[in-house]
Design a protein around this nucleic acid. Structure first.
Lengths: 226, 226
DNA sequence: CGTTTTAGCGAGTGATTACTCACTTTTAAT
DNA sequence: ATTAAAAGTGAGTAATCACTCGCTAAAACG
């Protein structure tokens, strides 16, 4: 963190100013909903404000009454996801794991985590699309994403891994490599399910896929009974 | 494959018409180079033809002498990657593995594959950015990508996996889950190296990271010496 | 050499872009 | 009921968009 975290700070500041959805006008909620839809479908740059207005059933001027620029809409869409999504993710779920790490096996913990993450992606599909898509070119968003979500999870996971290595549940491998293995499996799980292998995935249920993934993660694919 | 593969067919047709880079004018090569740069940096929609012309040191009209539309430039950029990248990948590398699959251990094969893939990503970074980015919204490109790269690799890998299971080198797990594990590890390897963990990655060399990944893939992270 | 073809140009095209502003309607407070 | 603020409107704006066209310069061909 050598740079001044202008964007992250700005985001948090922006989030504080964020109105609750309940205290928005209906038109304003429509604008956001339409923006999410269009941004997710065609991307930020390919969506025009006139389209958004049309989709929201609102005059184009109304958009700029609530958001001072088009980029401002993107922030209003991205910011909540980054905090509503990242913070509860890290703080609630992973921290919960931390508290009970002695009572559960590593396999149980990871299984819960994967199940939880799949549900989360399913529930926030459009927002995640936008987030990933914009993280692709906007350094600010990518750095904010890494700084908020990734680094937080990594530190917590690393402590868990090291604790489980001490207990003897995990092999004494470099922590970073173990973390990578856990995260890679999770990404692969979601990626195959959502994008790559949508047909074939139906032959196993989600829970079966998760069980298989955890098995492979812990035991590997190699045959050691030779 | 229930849909008529219009885009894939169109792509292949387009590729045949593709001029060799050597028989292009210098200006035309400049246009392509500038397009790759800008598309990778800011995305297709955010890059204007006037910018491309400026970056290429060319009049805007010259662009449309060679490419009948802006989308045509994208195809001229994407198409070669999809075939130069996908075909040699599948045909040369994986097929080579196939021929010698009895002479090598699974670990050796996967190690070579990961090494090869990292080098490939390094050499084609910008093109891959564009490809992934456009695959995000353009169903056509995503389907073409899956149909060309993914399906081909999957079928070949599956045969390899099944052969190695028969020999007793791999555990008799569902093939699809094993394939997913192999691919997930590869994606994780590249993702961490290029995006997520650029700092920490330097503490191990690429080859060390690959070795760790293959070890975990085959043996898992669980401790079985208890 | 003369002629045809291709490459390159840049001003100009209508359409569309994000955004403004003068104005009306709705809401809320006194 | 009066008034002030906030929400909503839609025509209008300059800028930019992808793209065209009439033109010149340079190869390519016979």
């Amino acid at each position: 963190m050598n740079k001044p975290p202008t964007f992250v700070e700005g985001l948090l500041q922006y989030v504080e100013e964020l109105k609750d959805e309940s205290e928005m006008t209906e038109k304003q909620r429509n604008i956001l909903r339409a923006s999410v839809k269009l941004f997710a479908e065609k991307g930020f740059h390919a969506s025009s404000t006139s389209e958004i207005a049309k989709e929201a059933g609102v005059a184009e001027g109304t958009i700029f009454r609530h958001y001072k620029s088009k980029k401002d809409i993107l922030l209003a869409v991205v910011a909540p996801v980054l905090v509503k999504f990242a913070a509860p993710f890290i703080l609630k779920d992973v921290r919960e794991i931390f508290k009970e790490q002695n009572k559960k096996t590593f396999a149980q913990i990871v299984t819960e985590l994967y199940r939880n993450r799949i549900d989360l992606v399913l529930a926030n599909e459009k927002h995640i699309r936008i987030l990933l898509q914009e993280a692709f070119f906007h350094d600010e968003i990518r750095e904010a994403l890494i700084a908020t979500v990734f680094t937080g999870v990594k530190e917590m996971a690393n402590k868990l891994i090291e604790a489980k290595v001490d207990v003897g549940e995990l092999r004494p491998l470099p922590t970073q490599a173990v973390f990578r293995a856990i995260l890679s499996s999770m990404i692969g799980l979601v990626l195959f399910r959502q994008v790559l292998d949508t047909d074939e995935f139906t032959q196993f249920s989600d829970d079966e896929q998760i069980a298989l993934t955890v098995d492979i993660l812990l035991n590997g694919i190699g045959n050691h009974s030779i």
